[in-house]
Design a protein around this nucleic acid. Structure first.
Lengths: 155, 155
DNA sequence: GAATTATAGTTGCACTCGCAACTAAGTCAA
DNA sequence: TTGACTTAGTTGCGAGTGCAACTATAATTC
């Protein structure tokens, strides 16, 4: 069988691949926590985290802050509501919109998961002792902020 | 509505979140390329990349190298075969296994996408000029190599 | 060498996702 | 104040995924 087809390309150095793998590895352990303890998906966790951190707001606000698709937010909100962790109240200014907020249940879950997230993040970073995290964070943020719409070779 | 629930936790500094967002942003543009040009999914692209880079091997080998679930590999292989980009031949030593390899079609697609991947990666890194990529790669690889099975707070 | 156990790979099912289409409500302009 | 357009949020549908169960072959053990 033919061996090397494209000597220039190496998946192991391909930044999207590296990032995706690193993200999966880093997320896996925490995912187990919110899944096992509360039966939540990642989207639900992220919606909860935003509501917990920033307080009540509309689904649209969550979309803007978190860059999650509105359909994902819609379903996550419905699921959190079914689980009695989130409540809706009508907006006074716009009858299309609903103000979302965490219930006591939801706040308790967020307090719990927030603590665990802090611990988890600390353990993760500690396990990578000696790395330059300030630089890492800067680079990751720079990458996140890109909207790489089929970026041309010339960047 | 209540505002701050957990002052210690900030999603914006949570490493799994940063990595996931960065990975999505970095992958999006290239995903469009293999999707629009060949109708491929990410898993199919990754299977192809491994076969293209390392030559013929079994599905099991691909699983080990790439850490993709065997069912994902199985379906990606089936899809690539349907698209005439991959062929199977029986293993001589083990009648359960099949040796997978790219067809001429598949090799051509890999050559094309490999070139584009190199360009894309270059453009992506160039757009982040001034960052320490050696350090970034080291950190990402360190994170990837972790198997963080619900890691305890003490790391 | 028959029974057990492990392995390569596939399939069924339930679930999440992305996209397009939809409903309902708000906005704007003549 | 009617009509065109925009926006908040939901739903249907096709597709990818994870997990468990399955088939077929290999390896092991008594």
């Amino acid at each position: 069988m033919p061996k090397p087809a494209n000597p220039r390309f190496d998946l192991q150095d391909f930044l999207p691949y590296l990032l995706t793998q690193a993200a999966e590895a880093a997320s896996q352990g925490f995912q187990q926590i919110y899944r096992d303890r509360y039966g939540m998906t990642r989207t639900q966790w992220r919606v909860m985290a935003n509501l917990g951190k920033f307080g009540a707001m509309t689904a649209r606000d969550i979309c803007e802050i978190s860059h999650i698709e509105k359909t994902k937010v819609s379903r996550a909100v419905a699921a959190l509501e079914r689980a009695a962790m989130l409540q809706r109240s009508p907006s006074e200014h716009d009858r299309r919109a609903e103000i979302l907020s965490l219930t006591e249940n939801g706040l308790a879950a967020f307090a719990d998961l927030g603590e665990r997230a802090v611990d988890y993040d600390l353990a993760l970073r500690r396990s990578l002792r000696g790395k330059d995290f300030a630089e890492l964070n800067r680079v990751l943020r720079a990458i996140m902020s890109q909207r790489l719409a089929a970026m041309p070779p010339e960047g």
